[in-house]
C-alpha cells in the first residue's frame, strides 16, 4: 500500500437521508458501482482526499526508484540488470499515470512535486529503508510490491474513473515485479550458504516494514469509514495485512526461510495465521522523518529537481522560441 494514513474530512459518514440531493445522487451512483469522472460534481472532501491519496501513491513510485536504482549498477547478471532497469522504468511510468490522474482533480504535477520536496506531502514509509544487499532486490519485489498489490488490486474498482483505470495498468506491471522479486529470492535461497544468508537477512529486515505498509489498525477510524463509503479505500488495513501474512508465510516456507516472528502460527479457528504486530513506534518515527533514509531520499529528490532546473528552463525557452517562430511564419 503506497498510501498510508490518509486523513479525510473526519466529519463522519452521512446517511443518504442527511445529504442534499446533489450529494445523494453522487453517493447513490457510487453505491451502485458507478464511476465518478473528472467533470462530474463531487464533494470537496472527496476531491481533496483523492488528491492526497493519489499524490502520495505517485510520490511513492518516484521515491521508490531510489532504493532499487541503488543496485542497477551492481546487478549480478546482464539479465538481472535489464529486468531491474525495466522495473524501475515501470515505476517512473506509474508515477506519471498517477500524477495525470491527480491532475484531473485540478492540481498540477508541479504543485504536487513541490509538496513532496518540501516534506508537506508524504510517500510510503517503506522507501525510507536502505537496500543493503542484492537479496534486498528480491525482498523488495516479493514483499513490498506484494504488499502494494494487496491494496492496488481492489483499487481497480475504486469509484474515481481515472484512478481506477491507472490502477488497471499498474497492477499488470506490479504482478510482474512481484514475480521477479520472488524469482531472485528463489535463486538466493537455493544458492550458496552466503546467498541464503543474504536472503534470510533481507527477509528479517523487510518483514516488519512491509507489514507497516498497510498502516495502523483503522477499526475505529472515521477517516477510513468515509473513504470506504466513497470507495476510494476498499478494505480495512487489518484485513489487507492479514491477507498479506496468509499469502507470504507459505511462500517463505517454500523458500526455506524463516519469517522473523516467533509467535507466528496457524489459527485453525480463524482460518488465518496469528502474527505479531510490527513495531508501531518505529513506524511513527519513520513518518516523522526519522527513518534510516528519510533525509537521503528527500535530499536526492531535491537535488535532482534543483540540478535539473536549468534543463527544464532551457527546454521551455526553446519550445517558446519555436512557437513564436511558427506564429511569425503563419
Amino acid at each position: 500500500m503506497y498510501a498510508q494514513m490518509i486523513k479525510s474530512t473526519g466529519d463522519g459518514v452521512k446517511s443518504l437521508d442527511e445529504m442534499e440531493p446533489q450529494e445523494r445522487a453522487f453517493q447513490e451512483r457510487i453505491n451502485a458501482g458507478g464511476k465518478i469522472e473528472p467533470k462530474d460534481w463531487m464533494p470537496e472532501g472527496y476531491r481533496k482526499n483523492l488528491i492526497r491519496q493519489i499524490g502520495q501513491h505517485a510520490h511513492s513510485e518516484i521515491v521508490g526508484q531510489l532504493p532499487e536504482g541503488n543496485w542497477i549498477t551492481r546487478a549480478p547478471t546482464l539479465e538481472r540488470k535489464a529486468i531491474l532497469l525495466a522495473k524501475v522504468q515501470d515505476e517512473a511510468g506509474h508515477g506519471l499515470y498517477l500524477y495525470c490522474a491527480a491532475e484531473t482533480l485540478g492540481v498540477s504535477r508541479d504543485q504536487l512535486t513541490r509538496d513532496l520536496l518540501s516534506g508537506k506531502m508524504k510517500y510510503s514509509s517503506i522507501f525510507n529503508y536502505p537496500t543493503l544487499t542484492w537479496a534486498d532486490m528480491g525482498a523488495v519485489g516479493w514483499l513490498v510490491d506484494g504488499a502494494a498489490i494487496m491494496n492496488q488490486v481492489p483499487l481497480q474498482r475504486t469509484s474515481y474513473g481515472p484512478y481506477a483505470r491507472a490502477m488497471v495498468r499498474i497492477c499488470k506491471e506490479e504482478s510482474f515485479h512481484q514475480r521477479q522479486g520472488y524469482d531472485i529470492m528463489m535463486k538466493m535461497a537455493k544458492g550458496t550458504p552466503a546467498q541464503k544468508k543474504m536472503a534470510q537477512d533481507a527477509l528479517d529486515r523487510f518483514w516488519g516494514p512491509a507489514l507497516m505498509m498497510f498502516g495502523p489498525s483503522d477499526e475505529n477510524s472515521v477517516h477510513s469509514a468515509q473513504s470506504m463509503a466513497w470507495k476510494i479505500k476498499m478494505n480495512s488495513n487489518d484485513e489487507l495485512r492479514q491477507k498479506f501474512v496468509d499469502e507470504c508465510v507459505p511462500q517463505a516456507e517454500y523458500l526455506g526461510l524463516t519469517v522473523p516472528d516467533p509467535d507466528l502460527k496457524w489459527n485453525d479457528e480463524r482460518g488465518h495465521y496469528d502474527f505479531t504486530q510490527p513495531d508501531w513506534d518505529e513506524f511513527f518515527d519513520v513518518l516523522k522523518g526519522n527513518g534510516p533514509c528519510n533525509t537521503e531520499r528527500l535530499e536526492a529528490r531535491n537535488k535532482a529537481w534543483d540540478d535539473g532546473a536549468w534543463v527544464r528552463e532551457g527546454l521551455m525557452a526553446h519550445a517558446a522560441k519555436k512557437r513564436a517562430a511558427k506564429l511569425a511564419a503563419e
Binding site: 518516484i62 542497477i72 539479465e79 517512473a92 506519471l96 535532482a304 529537481w305
Partner: peptide, 29 residues
Amino acid sequence: VSEWCGHAPVLEEDIALANTALDLIGQTT
C-alpha cells in the same frame, strides 16, 4: 546512463534514460 536512475531533471527524462540504458544492456548481451 543507468547511473541517472531516479535523479533526472524531470520524470519523462527518468523514463527515457532508463529506457536507453535498458536497450544498451540488451544489445550488450
